[in-house]
Write a protein that binds this DNA or RNA. Structure first.
Length: 259
DNA sequence: ATGCCTTGCGGAGCAAGA
C-alpha cells in the first residue's frame, strides 16, 4: 500500500504532470494540496479513468485539498473543528483500504510573522493537534499527510540563517509540530532516512531547484499501528525537474498489509 | 531587495505562495 502526498500548486495547471506521475509511481492513495479550484472544477473524470476515486474539498482561487484512492474511499469529512469562522479549504479526511484513516493537510503558511497570519497558523496547528489526538485514540491506523509548512530542524533546510525570520521556521512553529509528533506520531520519511538536506520544496525563484536550495516541509505522520506497518518511504524528486513543475514534489510511504 | 517565479482572476496588475 503506497500512500503519497503532493502539493500540486493548481490541479488544473498541473494535470498532465499529475497524470504522468500517477502512471509512473502507481500510488494507491494520494493526498493533494493547493488544488486551487472549486469542487466542480476538479478533473475528476481524468483521475477516475486511471482507477482513482476522488474526495474533494475545494475553494475558489486558493487552497483546496483532495484525496485520491484506488483502494476504496469512504466517509470523507472536511474541515477542522475549533474555528467556525475559518473558511479556508485546508483539511479533508477519509477512510481508505477499509480502515486506514487518512487526512490531507494544507497547513497555513503564516507569513508575514508580524501579521494576523502567524497566529492563525499557530491556532490552526492547535486545532490539528486536537484532531490528531482524537484519531490516535481510535487505536487504528492513521496517516496525516500534507504540506505542513513547517521546517522541523536545521537539517531540513539548505541555509537555516536565511529562513530564521520565516513563519515556517519560527521556534513556536517547530514546537507546535513537535507537540503533534509527541502525541505518538512518526515522521515516515525520517524514520527510514536520517540523512540531512532532503527537500520537498524548492522555490521557483533564484534557481533554487538547480542549486538544491530547498526545504523539507511536506510530511507523512503515522500513528503507531501505521508506523508498525512502515516498509519504506521516500521523496520522489522526479516531478520537480519536469517542465511546468509544481514547486513541491511528492513524498510517499509504503505500508505492508496487516498481519 | 517582500525582488527574483508561478498561479488565479480577469482581461491590468494584484494577491498569495514559502
Amino acid at each position: 500500500m503506497k500512500i503519497a502526498t503532493w502539493n500540486v500548486n493548481s490541479i488544473k495547471a498541473r494535470l498532465d504532470n499529475v497524470l504522468e506521475w500517477l502512471r509512473d509511481a502507481a500510488p494507491d492513495v494520494v493526498l493533494l494540496q493547493e488544488i486551487k479550484t472549486v469542487d466542480d472544477g476538479f478533473p475528476r473524470l481524468d483521475l477516475e479513468a486511471l482507477g482513482y476515486r476522488c474526495a474533494v474539498h475545494g475553494q475558489k482561487s486558493y487552497n483546496g485539498v483532495a484525496i485520491l484512492s484506488r483502494v476504496g474511499l469512504e466517509d470523507a469529512q472536511a474541515r477542522l473543528a475549533g474555528d467556525d469562522s475559518d473558511e479556508h479549504a485546508r483539511y479533508l479526511e477519509a477512510t481508505v483500504a477499509g480502515n486506514i484513516r487518512v487526512a490531507t493537510i494544507y497547513l497555513p503558511n503564516g507569513n508575514p510573522v508580524a501579521t494576523e497570519k502567524f497566529p492563525y497558523k499557530l491556532n490552526w496547528m492547535k486545532r490539528l493537534k486536537a484532531r490528531a489526538a482524537e484519531l490516535l485514540a481510535t487505536g487504528g491506523p492513521v496517516v496525516l499527510g500534507g504540506d505542513y509548512n513547517v521546517i522541523p530542524t536545521n537539517d531540513d533546510v539548505h541555509n537555516p540563517a536565511a529562513w530564521a525570520g520565516d513563519a515556517l521556521f519560527q521556534p513556536e512553529t517547530r514546537a507546535a509540530f513537535r507537540e503533534i509528533l509527541w502525541l505518538g506520531y512518526t515522521d515516515a520519511f525520517r524514520a527510514v532516512d536520517p540523512s540531512p538536506h532532503r527537500y520537498t520544496f524548492w522555490d521557483y525563484q533564484g534557481g533554487a531547484w538547480q542549486r538544491d536550495h530547498g526545504i523539507r516541509i511536506d510530511h507523512l505522520l503515522l500513528s503507531p499501528v501505521a508506523a508498525d506497518r512502515l516498509v519504506t518511504a521516500g521523496i520522489d524528486t522526479g516531478p520537480r525537474g519536469k517542465p511546468k513543475a509544481s514547486d513541491h514534489t511528492p513524498v510517499w510511504c509504503e505500508l505492508r498489509d496487516p498481519a
